[in-house]
């Protein structure tokens, strides 16, 4: 069984929802990223989404755009991000890690080489924002052949036909974008998220994560009643930007947030 499947199964048995933090890899540097990944796990996170920087992040709001710009000053590449996962695996063989980014760095590396190297490093899934299933036949096949789950987004604008076609190619879990907008947008509407998740679950049996617009413990708790995973990105990256020159403070600030979310989510699910 894959790490992702095992993680979701164990959480389900405990009646818990997965907490999935997004961090931009190498922000502010690789050593801090590694430390932060381990501390996130200790604070109650279950899956780590590691951001791969891209020069033109079209689906991201200003917070994550700025993080990518900070990291690209140091020329951090997709290969560097994969190497970080390999180092993380030296001391954590259990926590799933998924890479989130855009297609062009993977195009340039080549789908087959990317899949091989990522699998060898211990990457569990890849969420590539700008490759819809219509263009993803070869990409999906090559990833799956190496045991890497292609993770797909679903949106408020996805109709039944699209939900079905994504259900056919997705693996690991699907990620519902809770609002029309970019990452870090203001607020989400719990009722409409609940309705959409019901529609998705009628067609897709994989676990469903929810993200975009979840920035505090209260919202995380509300979503945890509905979803199998709660994804938090911009709220974390904002704290990372604030403490970029003080790695200890950065880790403390970020894990305080994730620990408070964990606590609120567990209470909500009781």
């Amino acid at each position: 069984m894959s790490r992702l499947a095992a993680t979701f199964e164990a959480l389900k048995a405990d009646n818990k929802t997965a907490l999935v933090p997004y961090i931009m890899c190498a922000d502010p540097d690789i050593d801090t990223t590694l430390k932060l990944m381990h501390e996130l796990v200790k604070s109650g996170c279950n899956i780590i989404e590691l951001g791969v920087p891209f020069s033109d992040p079209m689906a991201d709001g200003p917070v994550i755009q700025a993080a990518a710009e900070r990291v690209l000053v140091n020329h951090v590449s997709l290969r560097d991000v994969i190497a970080v996962v390999a180092r993380f695996r030296q001391t954590d063989s259990k926590t799933p890690v998924i890479l989130m980014g855009y297609l062009n760095p993977i195009e340039v590396m080549g789908y087959a080489e990317f899949a091989e190297q990522a699998a060898a490093a211990g990457v569990d899934g890849a969420l590539t924002v700008d490759i819809p299933p219509e263009e993803a036949e070869e990409y999906t096949q090559l990833l799956k052949a190496q045991g890497i789950d292609p993770i797909y987004l679903l949106a408020p604008t996805s109709d039944d036909g699209r939900i079905a076609s994504i259900g056919e190619v997705a693996a690991g879990f699907v990620y519902y974008v809770s609002l029309k907008g970019v990452t870090g947008a203001a607020s989400l509407d719990i009722d409409s998220v609940a309705d959409k998740l019901q529609q998705i679950r009628q067609q897709i049996s994989l676990p469903v994560g929810v993200g975009f617009g979840i920035g505090d413990a209260e919202t995380a708790a509300k979503i945890s009643r509905l979803a199998d995973a709660v994804v938090v990105g911009s709220a974390i990256v904002k704290r990372m930007a604030e403490f970029g020159h003080e790695p200890e403070q950065l880790i403390k600030s970020v894990t305080e947030l994730t620990a408070s979310m964990r606590k609120a989510m567990d209470q909500a699910n009781k």
């Binding site: 924002v129 700008d130 490759i131 819809p132 263009e135 949106a155 604008t157 109709d159 699209r162």
Partner: peptide, 9 residues
């Protein structure tokens, strides 16, 4: 067509 899911519809 290489776009995020929200824009596909």
């Amino acid at each position: 067509v290489f776009a995020a899911e929200t824009l596909m519809q």
